[in-house]
Nucleic acid binder design. Structure first.
Lengths: 246, 246
DNA sequence: GCGGAGCGTTAAGGATCCGTTAGGACCGCT
DNA sequence: AGCGGTCCTAACGGATCCTTAACGCTCCGC
């Protein structure tokens, strides 16, 4: 596991952090450290503008100082928790036991006392974001003839092509057939070499058994293709490998 | 919101805490304080018995001391995170910055340094449990033949199919049968691998005992399916797992 | 033309997996 | 102690799947 947070593929997935604090020095330190680690940072200096920023920017996580000039920290927490469950990490001076308890019970997710180590704060940040991530989303691939649901591990017919099968009917795939289809669909549009397929399904010692691929490709085509003899989705690239065309 | 944790309706829902620590004094203090607040407490004195206790007791939350005699704390965390996402609160001596980061990145949910205030620990405990609560989902699943109420842990017959049983009659399920049904219904439509089922019901060391699943699936089908020999709801995907179709 | 390589198709044997049943162990209760 | 309920374990027939081999086809280079 990489020690730093996931930078995302192509930089598309950036974690957005809202820092609510009235001390310029802390604001500055956090902005520098978080930006350096590819977080998207926005800031607010009091509770009122903080709440407005939450509603406007929808950050992925909130770092909240309890000692704000305009309102009590727990009020801010309640104001956020009233309508969302965005993780909140609370920042506060040392030794305020009861304040800690109140903040956590108000709905805060974590608590860090000042002075704090930046590494620790970053680690807690990663933990909070990781917890909030609902799931490694469910990819669904749809074609004119069938639909592949990777999460449910299921294929359903879209437009009953082979011999008028009813739309919405599930297609029964064996474990090996499913593995093969999953790899091809996950590399949708890209060419996958036979060696890679054989290695991922049967193991490294089967890299030359291209026979297996021909057998299972034929079975998959018979179950999925409108015209198995002239494939529209599961294409062969002679001498190279196979490709799924959406 | 009440300052103390939810006592549950009728006392049926009790939060179960596993404490893994080798210092008798801390063990004793936690046991007293947690029991007084109506938590169900079990303990373990090293990593090995701790991991075994997790698999056996399925606590709702784990309090883990990093300074164990037999293994490194992060190893314990990895051992737990390998198969479940039960919240883990880590306990450790003051000033071990790098240890904190390692534990949090290994998958711990929170971190408390010794000496700690009992009030703070309790607050963090409540926060961890609250976060783990999946949400007030839709706790009722209805089919043409029976209705599953996740919240009430009850199944009632809808259209008295097997041998003219009256509609509305409750179906008696054993604890194991209920666990199995609950997991399948919560993943409604999705395929659940037998390894996952075995892990969540019997623990990670039973991942190969697919025998159990066959026995209990048969019992569930006999109680719920109109035609147990040709299942409409509890489907088998040979070699892959089982699926509940609504 | 001719032969080989790569691919598609089919079928059969053997291995694996599943449904079902039954009996004994273990627990809580009367 | 007796009893009902639940859980674990083993065994067996049957269904399903994997492996393997064989054959026809097309596309090349020779």
């Amino acid at each position: 596991m990489p020690p730093d947070h996931d930078p995302g593929l192509g930089g598309a997935i950036v974690t957005r952090v809202l820092v609510v604090d009235d001390e310029p020095s802390i604001l500055r330190a956090l902005r520098i450290n978080l930006s350096a680690r590819e977080y998207d940072v926005t800031t607010a200096v009091d509770g009122t503008t903080g709440l407005a920023a939450v509603a406007r920017d929808r950050p992925d996580v909130i770092i909240l100082d309890l000692g704000l000039p305009d309102m009590d920290g727990t009020e801010v927490i309640h104001g956020v928790r009233g309508w969302t469950s965005i993780p909140i990490i609370v920042l506060s001076a040392w030794g305020q036991e009861s304040q800690k308890v109140a903040a956590l019970d108000a709905g805060a997710d974590d608590y860090v006392t000042k002075p704090f180590g930046m590494d620790e704060l970053l680690a807690r940040l990663r933990a909070a974001v990781r917890r909030a991530a609902p799931a490694p989303d469910e990819p669904v691939v749809v074609t004119a003839d069938f639909t592949v649901d990777l999460a449910a591990k299921q294929v359903v017919r879209s437009g009953g092509s082979p011999a008028g099968a009813p739309a919405g009917a599930p297609v029964r795939l064996t474990p090996t057939e499913w593995q093969l289809l999953e790899i091809l669909v996950r590399n949708s549009g890209r060419l996958v070499s036979q060696k890679q397929l054989l290695r991922e399904i049967w193991g490294p010692s089967y890299e030359t058994e291209s026979n297996y691929l021909r057998v299972y490709l034929a079975q998959l085509r018979r179950k999925l293709e409108p015209e198995p003899s002239r494939p529209r989705y599961l294409l062969t690239e002679p001498g190279m490998g196979y490709r799924f065309r959406p």
